[in-house]
Design a protein around this nucleic acid. Sequence first.
DNA 1: GAGTAATAGTTATCGAGAGTAACTAATTAT
DNA 2: ATAATTAGTTACTCTCGATAACTATTACTC
Lengths: 131, 131
Amino acid sequence: MLLYRPFENRLNNALSKHQLYRAQWSIMYYLNNDASVTLVELSHYLGVEKPTVTRTIAKLEEMGFLEPVPTKDKREKRMQLTDTGRKVYQEVRAAIDEFEQEILRGISEEEQLEGIRLMSEIRKNLMQGEL
Amino acid sequence: MLLYRPFENRLNNALSKHQLYRAQWSIMYYLNNDASVTLVELSHYLGVEKPTVTRTIAKLEEMGFLEPVPTKDKREKRMQLTDTGRKVYQEVRAAIDEFEQEILRGISEEEQLEGIRLMSEIRKNLMQGEL
DNA sequence: GAGTAATAGTTATCGAGAGTAACTAATTAT
DNA sequence: ATAATTAGTTACTCTCGATAACTATTACTC
């Protein structure tokens, strides 16, 4: 199976230093410092229902890591990282990069790239089946 | 990230036909038709605490998919698939194999094997970091 | 071999994070 | 102008993870 708990446990561990949880991180990760997103966009990207996103976003906003950006369409709620959010992103990112190095030790650059290519291929196939 | 919700959603979908959930399936999958396991063994394999296993096992037993096998050590609770359990295993397995074929389409046998090798390499690294 | 350690499992309680159903408000299409 | 669609929210439910504190059995130690 692709899902592997010990990996999740390690991730949780890296996040716990900042009181973050996986679902929250996946949103900060998607924003990747600069971008902004709507809830629907996130819901598609994450493959999760809207109420789930609403809740997670609300928590991140309350924690001061996310803030709304104004938009023409008044239905939309578009969000971006705050300054603190960006700082935390950087720190967590570094911690995760570190443990990723660790679990990839003994695996050549080439093999890693091949692996990433494979995963995105699978992802593409997955997305097609979603319609 | 290695974890990818749409994949989990597809898996859930394959399982839902038999009223199964992922945590339950992961145990049936580990048993792989024949073997038997103790809770501690599962707890290590799954990377999950004992109470979690207790609950999941209890549900599977109640559903009639798992049964205890007698053992010398009276502390142990060793479990195996029942006949119904084995039947369900086969059916679900077939469904999962099918959708795995689907999401692997366009990826050569070689690449798949290379991918599997990579994953188990990562897994090995992960396990070492667990001590 | 008696007494202490360790091990296997359970119970109770908590929290994250997913889902569905039913809703409001805003925008688009007819 | 009205109907349909879209974005998001609220309320509620469920799975599945964790911890703490416990019992029963087995293994270790002196």
